[in-house]
Amino acid sequence: MPVTDAPRLQWQTAEVREIVEETPRVRTIILDVPSWHGHKAGQHIDVRLTADDGYQAQRSYSIASAPESDHLMLSVERIEEGEVSPYLAGEARMGDKFELRGPIGGYFVWTIATGGPLFLIAGGSGVAPLMAMLRHRAAQKSTIPATLLFSSRTYDDIIYRAEMERLAAADPHLKIVHTLTRGQPAGWTGPSRRIDSEMLVSEGFAPDAKPHIYICGPTALVESSARALLALGHDRALIKTERFGPTGL
Protein backbone atom coordinates (compact mmCIF):
# COMPACT_ATOMS: atom_id res chain seq x y z
CA MET A 1 0.00 0.00 0.00
CA PRO A 2 1.47 3.37 -0.96
CA VAL A 3 2.07 5.88 1.80
CA THR A 4 0.35 9.21 1.50
CA ASP A 5 0.44 11.84 4.18
CA ALA A 6 -3.15 12.51 5.10
CA PRO A 7 -3.65 16.20 5.81
CA ARG A 8 -5.42 15.52 9.09
CA LEU A 9 -5.32 12.52 11.32
CA GLN A 10 -8.79 10.98 11.22
CA TRP A 11 -10.33 8.37 13.46
CA GLN A 12 -11.46 5.42 11.39
CA THR A 13 -13.12 2.10 12.06
CA ALA A 14 -11.12 -1.10 12.20
CA GLU A 15 -12.62 -4.60 12.27
CA VAL A 16 -10.97 -7.58 13.92
CA ARG A 17 -10.36 -10.11 11.14
CA GLU A 18 -8.34 -12.70 13.00
CA ILE A 19 -6.63 -13.27 16.32
CA VAL A 20 -3.38 -15.21 16.63
CA GLU A 21 -2.16 -16.46 20.00
CA GLU A 22 1.57 -15.78 19.73
CA THR A 23 2.64 -16.84 23.21
CA PRO A 24 0.88 -17.51 26.52
CA ARG A 25 1.09 -13.77 27.18
CA VAL A 26 0.83 -12.07 23.81
CA ARG A 27 -1.67 -12.15 21.03
CA THR A 28 -1.79 -10.53 17.63
CA ILE A 29 -4.91 -8.75 16.45
CA ILE A 30 -5.20 -8.73 12.66
CA LEU A 31 -7.36 -5.86 11.45
CA ASP A 32 -9.22 -4.78 8.37
CA VAL A 33 -9.07 -1.00 8.03
CA PRO A 34 -10.98 -0.11 4.87
CA SER A 35 -9.64 3.40 4.43
CA TRP A 36 -6.03 2.72 5.47
CA HIS A 37 -3.50 4.79 3.52
CA GLY A 38 -0.44 2.67 4.29
CA HIS A 39 2.39 3.11 6.77
CA LYS A 40 6.14 2.86 7.24
CA ALA A 41 7.77 0.16 9.34
CA GLY A 42 8.12 1.37 12.92
CA GLN A 43 5.13 3.71 12.98
CA HIS A 44 2.26 3.32 15.40
CA ILE A 45 -1.45 3.94 15.71
CA ASP A 46 -3.71 5.23 18.44
CA VAL A 47 -6.62 2.99 19.47
CA ARG A 48 -9.72 4.57 21.01
CA LEU A 49 -12.44 2.64 22.79
CA THR A 50 -15.76 4.25 23.64
CA ALA A 51 -18.00 2.89 26.40
CA ASP A 52 -21.81 2.94 26.18
CA ASP A 53 -21.87 6.00 28.44
CA GLY A 54 -19.48 7.87 26.12
CA TYR A 55 -16.36 7.41 28.22
CA GLN A 56 -13.29 7.08 26.02
CA ALA A 57 -9.94 5.41 26.60
CA GLN A 58 -6.99 5.67 24.28
CA ARG A 59 -3.49 4.34 23.86
CA SER A 60 -0.93 3.84 21.15
CA TYR A 61 0.37 0.58 19.68
CA SER A 62 3.17 -0.11 17.29
CA ILE A 63 2.22 -1.62 13.97
CA ALA A 64 3.72 -5.12 13.65
CA SER A 65 2.80 -5.75 10.02
CA ALA A 66 4.88 -4.76 7.02
CA PRO A 67 3.76 -1.86 4.85
CA GLU A 68 3.38 -4.48 2.11
CA SER A 69 0.77 -6.42 4.09
CA ASP A 70 -2.94 -6.16 3.27
CA HIS A 71 -3.86 -6.10 6.94
CA LEU A 72 -2.81 -4.18 9.99
CA MET A 73 -1.38 -6.25 12.86
CA LEU A 74 -1.02 -5.26 16.50
CA SER A 75 0.58 -7.48 19.12
CA VAL A 76 -0.71 -6.92 22.62
CA GLU A 77 0.46 -8.22 25.97
CA ARG A 78 -2.16 -9.60 28.33
CA ILE A 79 -0.63 -8.29 31.48
CA GLU A 80 -0.44 -4.71 30.37
CA GLU A 81 -2.29 -2.31 32.58
CA GLY A 82 -4.62 0.39 31.41
CA GLU A 83 -8.02 0.48 29.85
CA VAL A 84 -7.35 -0.58 26.28
CA SER A 85 -4.88 -3.48 26.42
CA PRO A 86 -7.05 -5.74 28.62
CA TYR A 87 -9.77 -5.48 25.97
CA LEU A 88 -7.48 -6.11 22.99
CA ALA A 89 -5.54 -8.87 24.73
CA GLY A 90 -8.54 -10.52 26.33
CA GLU A 91 -12.05 -9.73 25.18
CA ALA A 92 -11.66 -8.70 21.55
CA ARG A 93 -13.27 -11.18 19.16
CA MET A 94 -13.41 -11.61 15.40
CA GLY A 95 -15.83 -9.10 13.94
CA ASP A 96 -15.40 -6.57 16.76
CA LYS A 97 -15.03 -2.99 15.64
CA PHE A 98 -13.19 -0.12 17.25
CA GLU A 99 -11.63 3.18 16.28
CA LEU A 100 -8.03 3.86 15.40
CA ARG A 101 -6.02 6.63 13.80
CA GLY A 102 -2.67 6.58 12.10
CA PRO A 103 -0.09 5.93 10.97
CA ILE A 104 1.66 8.24 13.41
CA GLY A 105 5.26 9.19 14.07
CA GLY A 106 8.18 9.59 11.71
CA TYR A 107 10.90 9.25 14.33
CA PHE A 108 11.11 5.48 14.91
CA VAL A 109 10.94 4.52 11.24
CA TRP A 110 13.10 2.34 9.01
CA THR A 111 12.70 1.83 5.28
CA ILE A 112 14.94 0.15 2.71
CA ALA A 113 15.99 3.66 1.68
CA THR A 114 17.28 4.33 5.21
CA GLY A 115 19.94 1.71 4.50
CA GLY A 116 22.03 -0.41 6.78
CA PRO A 117 23.40 -2.33 8.42
CA LEU A 118 20.29 -2.67 10.53
CA PHE A 119 20.71 -3.53 14.21
CA LEU A 120 17.48 -4.18 16.09
CA ILE A 121 17.31 -4.66 19.84
CA ALA A 122 14.05 -5.75 21.44
CA GLY A 123 12.61 -6.79 24.76
CA GLY A 124 9.29 -8.66 24.92
CA SER A 125 6.43 -7.11 22.97
CA GLY A 126 8.76 -4.25 22.06
CA VAL A 127 9.69 -6.46 19.14
CA ALA A 128 6.51 -5.47 17.27
CA PRO A 129 7.76 -2.39 15.36
CA LEU A 130 11.09 -4.14 14.73
CA MET A 131 9.22 -7.11 13.28
CA ALA A 132 7.51 -4.66 10.93
CA MET A 133 11.00 -3.61 9.79
CA LEU A 134 12.13 -7.23 9.27
CA ARG A 135 8.91 -8.05 7.43
CA HIS A 136 9.35 -4.96 5.24
CA ARG A 137 12.97 -5.93 4.54
CA ALA A 138 11.91 -9.48 3.63
CA ALA A 139 9.03 -8.31 1.45
CA GLN A 140 11.47 -6.11 -0.48
CA LYS A 141 13.94 -9.03 -0.75
CA SER A 142 16.57 -6.71 0.66
CA THR A 143 20.10 -7.98 1.31
CA ILE A 144 20.89 -5.18 3.77
CA PRO A 145 22.69 -6.93 6.64
CA ALA A 146 20.38 -7.10 9.63
CA THR A 147 20.63 -8.43 13.16
CA LEU A 148 17.89 -8.75 15.74
CA LEU A 149 18.91 -9.20 19.35
CA PHE A 150 15.74 -10.21 21.18
CA SER A 151 15.33 -10.61 24.92
CA SER A 152 12.45 -12.80 26.12
CA ARG A 153 11.68 -14.33 29.49
CA THR A 154 11.55 -17.93 28.34
CA TYR A 155 11.56 -19.90 25.08
CA ASP A 156 7.76 -20.07 25.07
CA ASP A 157 7.60 -16.28 25.44
CA ILE A 158 9.43 -15.62 22.16
CA ILE A 159 6.94 -13.68 20.05
CA TYR A 160 6.91 -14.52 16.29
CA ARG A 161 9.40 -17.34 16.95
CA ALA A 162 8.41 -19.59 14.06
CA GLU A 163 8.30 -16.74 11.56
CA MET A 164 11.69 -15.51 12.73
CA GLU A 165 13.15 -18.98 12.23
CA ARG A 166 11.74 -19.08 8.70
CA LEU A 167 13.05 -15.62 7.84
CA ALA A 168 16.54 -16.30 9.21
CA ALA A 169 16.80 -19.74 7.57
CA ALA A 170 16.01 -18.26 4.17
CA ASP A 171 18.28 -15.24 4.44
CA PRO A 172 22.07 -15.34 4.88
CA HIS A 173 22.11 -11.60 5.59
CA LEU A 174 19.75 -11.85 8.56
CA LYS A 175 20.84 -12.95 12.01
CA ILE A 176 18.44 -13.38 14.90
CA VAL A 177 19.81 -13.93 18.39
CA HIS A 178 17.56 -14.79 21.32
CA THR A 179 18.50 -14.28 24.92
CA LEU A 180 16.30 -15.88 27.59
CA THR A 181 16.36 -14.07 30.91
CA ARG A 182 14.13 -16.17 33.15
CA GLY A 183 14.37 -19.75 32.03
CA GLN A 184 16.02 -21.80 29.31
CA PRO A 185 14.97 -25.09 27.77
CA ALA A 186 17.25 -28.12 28.09
CA GLY A 187 20.16 -27.85 25.72
CA TRP A 188 19.83 -24.07 25.25
CA THR A 189 23.12 -22.74 23.92
CA GLY A 190 22.16 -19.10 23.42
CA PRO A 191 22.67 -16.29 25.92
CA SER A 192 20.69 -16.47 29.17
CA ARG A 193 21.00 -12.98 30.61
CA ARG A 194 19.81 -9.47 30.07
CA ILE A 195 21.23 -7.61 27.09
CA ASP A 196 24.57 -6.11 28.07
CA SER A 197 27.56 -4.45 26.51
CA GLU A 198 29.36 -7.73 25.86
CA MET A 199 26.33 -9.09 24.00
CA LEU A 200 25.97 -5.89 21.96
CA VAL A 201 29.60 -6.29 20.87
CA SER A 202 29.52 -10.02 20.13
CA GLU A 203 26.17 -10.04 18.31
CA GLY A 204 25.93 -6.55 16.85
CA PHE A 205 27.83 -4.43 14.37
CA ALA A 206 30.97 -2.44 15.11
CA PRO A 207 30.59 1.34 15.34
CA ASP A 208 32.73 1.65 12.18
CA ALA A 209 30.00 -0.12 10.22
CA LYS A 210 27.65 2.75 11.15
CA PRO A 211 24.64 0.54 11.81
CA HIS A 212 21.18 2.05 12.08
CA ILE A 213 20.09 0.98 15.55
CA TYR A 214 16.51 0.66 16.78
CA ILE A 215 15.80 -0.28 20.39
CA CYS A 216 12.29 -1.01 21.64
CA GLY A 217 11.18 -2.55 24.90
CA PRO A 218 10.82 -1.84 28.58
CA THR A 219 12.40 1.42 29.73
CA ALA A 220 15.26 -0.26 31.62
CA LEU A 221 16.29 -2.35 28.62
CA VAL A 222 16.08 0.61 26.24
CA GLU A 223 18.09 2.95 28.44
CA SER A 224 20.79 0.46 29.42
CA SER A 225 21.25 -0.68 25.80
CA ALA A 226 21.40 2.88 24.48
CA ARG A 227 23.94 3.87 27.14
CA ALA A 228 26.10 0.83 26.39
CA LEU A 229 26.02 1.51 22.64
CA LEU A 230 27.03 5.14 23.15
CA ALA A 231 29.89 4.01 25.40
CA LEU A 232 31.00 1.59 22.67
CA GLY A 233 31.28 4.51 20.28
CA HIS A 234 28.08 4.28 18.26
CA ASP A 235 26.75 7.52 16.79
CA ARG A 236 23.92 8.97 18.86
CA ALA A 237 22.18 10.13 15.69
CA LEU A 238 21.91 6.53 14.47
CA ILE A 239 20.31 5.20 17.67
CA LYS A 240 16.52 5.40 17.82
CA THR A 241 14.73 4.36 20.97
CA GLU A 242 11.17 3.56 21.90
CA ARG A 243 10.31 2.89 25.53
CA PHE A 244 6.96 1.25 25.97
CA GLY A 245 6.43 1.53 29.69
CA PRO A 246 7.13 -0.26 32.92
CA THR A 247 6.49 -3.88 31.93
CA GLY A 248 9.54 -5.56 33.41
CA LEU A 249 11.52 -8.27 31.68
Binding site: L9, H44, S60, R101, G102, G105, Y107, F108, E242, R243
Partner: peptide, 8 residues
Protein backbone atom coordinates in the same frame (compact mmCIF):
# COMPACT_ATOMS: atom_id res chain seq x y z
CA UNK B 1 7.69 6.89 27.43
CA UNK B 2 9.07 8.72 24.39
CA UNK B 3 7.92 11.80 22.59
CA UNK B 4 7.09 9.38 19.81
CA UNK B 5 4.22 8.01 21.90
CA UNK B 6 2.60 11.46 21.90
CA UNK B 7 2.73 11.79 18.12
CA UNK B 8 -1.05 11.42 17.85
Amino acid sequence: VDGNAVAG
